[in-house]
Simulated assay, not measured.
Amino acid sequence: MKNKIIPLLIFLLTTTSLYSVFAQNDEYYRPDSLRKEKNRVVPAPQDEPVVMKKDSIERKKRLADFQDRPFIDRVRLGGSFGLSFGTVTNVNLSPMAGYELTEKLVAGVGVTGMYFRSRYYDINDFYYGGRAFMMYQLFPMVNVIGEFEGMNVIGSYQKRQWLGSPLIGAAYSQPIGGRFIKYAHLTILYNLNYNNQIDQYSGQNLSPYSSPFVFRVTFL
């Protein structure tokens, strides 16, 4: 009986050893990528924060709603006016039209009529001109504005001439809910060309504004 058991045990040990050797050789010759793939731990996907996901969805919805607006719903109509009294009297009115290029950017044009009177230079006349502007909503109630205004004014010897005024500034804006007149803007602008608008004969500044700062109330 013992003679039968001993060969059986030797056979089992030999078979087990050979299996182990072949298994190790198989792992050894397996490509590195497969061995790493076998042992790699795939991290669980992390969900995007709920607040960021909600904001992204709302931005995309607003953009889609804006792009779907018909042309007429992106048009703005209105105007601006300004007043100053004293040695120089300036009463101006400017109808304006704008178009919403994006949710925050509006471009437009306007024409200006102005009653101008200067006691010092004995001028009592009507000035006229036009403007082109761009207005960008920096914050919900703050817009930055860039504008170019051309005005036909009176210089020496009652000769009329054109003045070009690049203006930059900002506006405090409040929504008023109209279809075409959507905001009321309290605007302050600075005339970058003010100090160059000097009459060559009299030496007076031909700008119809008494300083480089221009104040307006605009509805657009």
Rank of each mutant, 00 (worst) to 15 (best):
V42Y: 12
V42D: 12
P43V: 00
A44S: 08
A44R: 10
A44K: 13
P45Q: 01
Q46I: 07
Q46K: 09
Q46H: 02
Q46C: 00
D47C: 01
E48N: 09
E48G: 00
E48F: 04
P49E: 08
P49N: 04
P49T: 06
V50E: 09
V50K: 07
M52K: 09
M52A: 15
K53V: 02
K54V: 10
K54W: 12
K54M: 11
K54Y: 11
D55Y: 14
D55M: 15
D55I: 15
S56F: 13
I57R: 13
I57E: 13
I57F: 11
E58W: 09
E58M: 13
E58R: 15
R59H: 09
R59G: 08
R59A: 12
K60P: 02
K60C: 03
K61C: 00
K61G: 02
R62G: 00
R62C: 00
R62H: 05
L63G: 04
L63E: 15
D65R: 15
D65P: 04
F66E: 05
F66P: 03
F66M: 11
F66I: 05
Q67Y: 13
Q67F: 04
D68W: 03
P70G: 12
F71K: 04
F71V: 11
F71E: 02
I72C: 00
D73L: 06
R74P: 00
R74H: 04
R74T: 04
V75T: 06
R76P: 00
R76E: 12
R76N: 09
R76G: 04
R76Q: 14
L77Y: 05
G78A: 03
G78Q: 05
S80A: 08
